[in-house]
Amino acid sequence: MLKVFFGEMPQALYSTSLYFDNTYFDGWLDDEFAQKMIRSVDKATVLSGHAVESKALGIIPPTKLSGGLKTLLLIYNEPNKIFNASTCGDNCAKWLLKIPKVLDRDVTVNLRHIMDFGDGNFEINILNDDTVVHNMNELVQHAVKFIGE
């Protein structure tokens, strides 16, 4: 299940783009699920572990991927760490929900904003008050209390 801590979380890695640039491995881009995320979020195709062809920017190194996608790749490849997922836009939300399922384990992220997880049902454990919410209405009622704390 996706676990979310809303608001300030000192142990979460805040500058995910910088962290990605210095820690990613070429092999991360070989993964089929990672390639799906890259296609979906950045509209880009993986050419190799060193290069991605982006619709907007042409052929770029992985360090030029979007901040949101870098964070998704970090969460997917380093699920024991906690990352600031507010570097992800709403177009990353469905992938955040999928990562724990693909990895078949709980994954914890830090959010400093109310991400829109869409109109469907889901399961997210809000760690601030250890509540499981099942849709955006439930999520909003809990999350507004913790944003800004």
Binding site: D42, A56, L57, G67, L69, T87, C88, G89, N91
Partner: peptide, 26 residues
């Protein structure tokens, strides 16, 4: 040669947000 941004700032503080990969960092 690949991208062009044209916009106006009106006040002392402007916030950019929205979807990932929309070009903020670029």
């Amino acid at each position: 040669n690949r991208v062009q941004y044209k916009f106006t700032v009106n006040r002392n503080i402007t916030i950019l947000r929205g979807d990932s990969a929309s070009g903020k960092t670029t």
